[in-house]
Simulated scan of single mutants.
Amino acid sequence: MQHDAHHAHAARDHRHQGHAHAQGSGDAGWAMAVRATLHCLTGCAIGEVLGMVIGTALGWGDVPTMALAIALAFLFGYALTLRGILKAGVGLRAAVRVALAADTLSIAVMELVDNGVLVLWPGAMEAHLDSALFWVALALALAVAFAVTTPVNKWMIGRGKGHAVVHRYHR
């Protein structure tokens, strides 16, 4: 009887700890969300800037330039996550599944907001590489995307999704 009571108490303590960890707490939850969003922003920014530079330099129209930028943002976003997961010793197939689960929503929100700002900003899509408007609009679009995506990442991490999945593989 005493043995069963001990196991029930241990199980309750374990559930409580798991619940607290999954929900995150105040600053710790936001800090993790900011780190996850900065990670996402890094990959997105590399791909976005590269895509915009290539499309603009080649004289492509708005749609093909934006499509290239979005595709490269996803590619670089996933690649940065894959690098860390593979380094932890996870096999490629499992690492790809983790990266897709961790980053897809975050990158999608970031790209939707980022490209939405660029499309809505008068003249931003027509600006050339040597124009301050090109770089200012792109930087501000990424900043707005960061601000919108951070709460999304906090929500996902609080539910054990998104970058919470990636953190299981960090050493």
Rank of each mutant, 00 (worst) to 15 (best):
M1C: 10
M1N: 11
H6Y: 12
H7E: 15
H9R: 15
A11Q: 13
R12H: 15
H16T: 14
A20P: 00
A20S: 14
D27I: 14
A31P: 00
A31V: 12
R35F: 06
R35C: 02
T37L: 01
C40P: 09
L41K: 05
I46C: 04
G47S: 08
E48F: 11
G51M: 05
G55T: 09
T56G: 11
G59H: 05
W60H: 07
G61N: 06
V63Q: 10
P64D: 04
A67W: 06
L68N: 03
I70R: 06
L72P: 01
L72S: 07
L72I: 01
F74E: 08
L75N: 06
F76G: 02
G77M: 04
G77A: 06
A79T: 13
R83F: 13
I85K: 07
L86C: 03
K87V: 15
G91P: 06
G91M: 03
L92G: 09
V96S: 10
R97G: 14
A99C: 10
A99G: 14
A102S: 14
A102E: 12
L105K: 05
M110C: 06
E111R: 05
V113M: 04
N115M: 03
N115K: 09
G116T: 02
V117I: 15
V119N: 02
L120G: 09
A127W: 08
A127T: 00
H128Y: 04
D130S: 15
A132Y: 05
F134M: 03
W135E: 07
W135H: 05
V136A: 13
L138A: 12
A143Y: 04
A145N: 01
A145C: 10
A145Q: 04
A147C: 13
T149G: 06
P151N: 00
I157N: 02
K161T: 11
G162F: 07
G162L: 04
H163Y: 13
H163C: 00
A164V: 04
R168F: 00
R168C: 08
R171G: 15
